[in-house]
Design a protein around this nucleic acid. Sequence first.
RNA 1: GAUCCCGUAGCUCAACUGGAUAGAGCACCCGCCUUCUAAGCGGGUGGUUGCAGGUUCAAGUCCUGCCGGGAUCGCCA
Length: 590
Amino acid sequence: MTTSRDLAGLLSDAAGAAFVSLGLEASLGAVRRSDRPDLADFQCNGAMAAAKKLAKNPRDIATAVVDALKTSPLVASSDVAGPGFINVKLSAEGLSKRAQEIAADDRAGAQRVETPRRVVMDFGGWNVAKEMHIGHLRSTVIGDSLQRLFRFMGDSVTSDVHLGDWGLQMGQLINEVKLEQPNLPYFDAAFTGPYPEQSPVTMDDLSRLYPLASGKSKSDEDRRNEDRQATQELQSGRPGYRALWRHFCSVTRVGLERECKSLGVTFDLWKGESDAEPFIPQIVDDLKSRGISEFDAGAWIVRVARESDKKEMPPIILVNRDGAIGYHGSDLGTIVDRKQSIDPQLSLYIVDQRQALHFEQVFRASDRAGYLPEKELEHLGFGTVNGPDGKPFKTREGGILKLHEFIAQADAVATARMKEAELGSDVSEAEQADIAHKVAVAAIKFSDLSNVRTTNYIFDLDRFISFEGKTGPYLLFNAVRIKSLARRAEAEGVKPGAIGIELDAERALVLQLDAFSDALRSAYDKRMPHILCDHAYLLAQAFSGFYTAAPILVESDPVKKASRFALALATLKQLEIVLALIGIDIPERM
RNA sequence: GAUCCCGUAGCUCAACUGGAUAGAGCACCCGCCUUCUAAGCGGGUGGUUGCAGGUUCAAGUCCUGCCGGGAUCGCCA
């Protein structure tokens, strides 16, 4: 099955051929949407770049390309502007043909990658004993959107939460529980089991104990040593500690799965740092025997610095001086695990930008060891979520905003908004709640994802869950409007027909539908979901313009009616796809 | 101290990696519901892109230097 090409691609081919016939590179013919919609639909800037190489007048080159472009049936008019811009205006036939291709295509004009890859995605950034809070939102929604996008493009994706379940925090927690409940069998080295099946701590206990333990460990040297000791014992398999630790993990997981379900996020694997543990001994032996790992200051390290480095590049710590494994070791172990079980061609780590150095070190170590090559390992950093003061977001009380509380707030605002507009009064309470939740999640995800992945952004609760303007609910509103239209059309026996282009609003809508494949490629190549958000918004906006300018069901001309209805359905299909890629569910009504 | 990122309208953010007149949303002002969902549509106000140089037909984007903010720099992850 071959997918038809988008208009920019077809024009690029034509312009590229013209450049080639002038003895120049085809890539100069790259055509894109015009910056000046008043002048043209598409533009090509290659003539100016070419003029530099050939030392010729750019306008002469542009004129030659324009003459070639004019022979295409897609092109209504083409001319040279300014220093050598090539402007193209499309013919109504070209637009109508493209619109019909999109309308007939299950993927609404979307292409696939030529060679699918096995891809591993590591996101979420959650830890045992910590509830999901607002700071976890980014990794989760960005990662989820990317896994949806990569799958849609044809790759085979394995997503892994890679839970933080294996570091010093575990030793800290064990000791903190021991202080509170010293008589539990987990701490009795002589106890032979079996250990209780019921967890001695709840999630609330854990999130209360964690900061307590962490604080003490930081300020008290002796306590810290005890925590390290406990961590080492846990990792080397002390049965009571292992049993208690498993309770920590399962108790935490219940909460995390609840949040996942609420947000509509899924993972293929629920592995953790601890799953890398079995691979560590063989890695250490392997790297020692090959002289790649060395013993330094009490720890087994791998040096990853290079001559060309402008900055200091510390070695990775494979096994620390307590004999325990830190996050360097576990990440390297995970790479080996994944190589053996999945053999990925690309591994994406969607983790806070602050860990850029860490990943560079681990990737270099992996490369040096010959596990997975550095160029197939990518850290997709993202900015932090800050409060209005520019520091990591805190609630007014100075605490951390838990994710489920945040979602509940958004649900409440959405519910209130529905009541206010007297919507949903004719449906059941359960459906109302479902609609409100979908609206809330749409608002949250769109707000987060529409920011460029790599930059920090300022979190403002009210703006995040606002439902007007460039927001998730605006997109839902447009999709729902078309669904409603489709229901009425069916009742009236209206069928979609051949798409003709007459109005400016129709042109604009078709051009936006056509821009989908470019947005997809761009979002995919750059791993940037905000490009999808942008496309979704522009599409919804173009549809809104069309909707007001071109009445459908009340149109008396049956040919126009059928054409406009077909265009509306094509828009709905593409909107459904893009929103699905962002991770947004569309209700039937709202 | 070193390295990296950021600075765009009152606020929150874009700008297809060097292209034409820097775009949206919010806020503010004006208009539009007895016809398909007004969570909407149309119009308006608002900019020396932190500052100063440089590179070239062309700079928010590239290079240099300042100013301001943030992050990171071997055993917490």
